[in-house]
Nucleic acid binder design. Structure first.
Length: 197
DNA sequence: AGCACGATGCTCT
DNA sequence: GAGCATCGTGCTT
């Protein structure tokens, strides 16, 4: 119920190293206006995908129509479709021409929780495909600038989460990715799956 | 509570 | 034509 104005995260933030951004986004607020209603979730899980070398990163295939957004300026949304059902939300990071992004894997609803829950038929919003369904994020949000004020999708400052509350480990869901990429500790997750707010 | 599997369509080879 | 940064269901323990 807080009406405190939070600062939106800006381009300079997304130009930091991708791992720093993935860590710092834990506790940040993902905001969305959907059907005239405001939805906000605290980010509780992220993964970093860094460069053409990273065999788990879509940019391993180089510049394609799908991946060229990752080569663009930082702070834009990279939304893609997978497994025939699910949309994934990423934020493009690092300087132009270097392809990297942070996958937003989970949120903890703090505003508009009822609408998000209803959009999920009462099921939870923890998971990369679930949060996009809860917030109505699809291809039409691809390439949106998340640093723009008055947008219907943005990321703003949230709560500060201490290191002792963050679990770092290998990324999940990578089926056929070779080492060393498979084991890179590029996943960040709130310990206990929940923030105290 | 945990595992196996099918759904489903877009992207790249 | 294969593979996929997943999810939900249904079956087994």
């Amino acid at each position: 119920m807080s009406s405190v104005v939070k600062p939106i995260l800006h381009h300079e933030f997304y130009n930091l190293p991708t791992l720093t951004i993935a860590r710092e986004l834990i506790g940040a607020r993902l905001g969305r206006v959907l059907e005239g209603r405001k939805l906000v979730g605290l980010i509780t899980e992220t993964e970093a995908y860094i460069g053409e070398e990273d065999q788990a990163c879509h940019a391993k295939a180089g510049r394609t129509s799908r991946t060229q957004i990752m080569y663009g300026p930082p702070g834009h949304a990279y939304v893609y479709f997978t497994y025939g059902n699910h949309w994934m939300l990423n934020v493009v990071t690092e300087k132009e021409d270097f392809p990297a992004a942070v996958l937003i894997r989970a949120i903890q609803p703090v505003e508009g929780a009822e609408l998000m829950s209803a959009r999920r038929s009462g099921r939870d919003t923890f998971g990369p495909g679930k949060l996009t369904q809860a917030m109505g994020i699809t291809k039409s949000e691809n390439t949106l600038d998340l640093t723009e004020a008055n947008s219907n999708l943005w990321i703003e400052a949230g709560v500060s989460v201490p290191d002792q509350s963050v679990t770092i480990g290998p990324r999940v869901g990578l089926n056929t990715v070779p080492e060393p990429w498979l084991s890179k500790p590029w996943r960040f997750l709130v310990k206990g799956w929940k923030l105290n707010i």
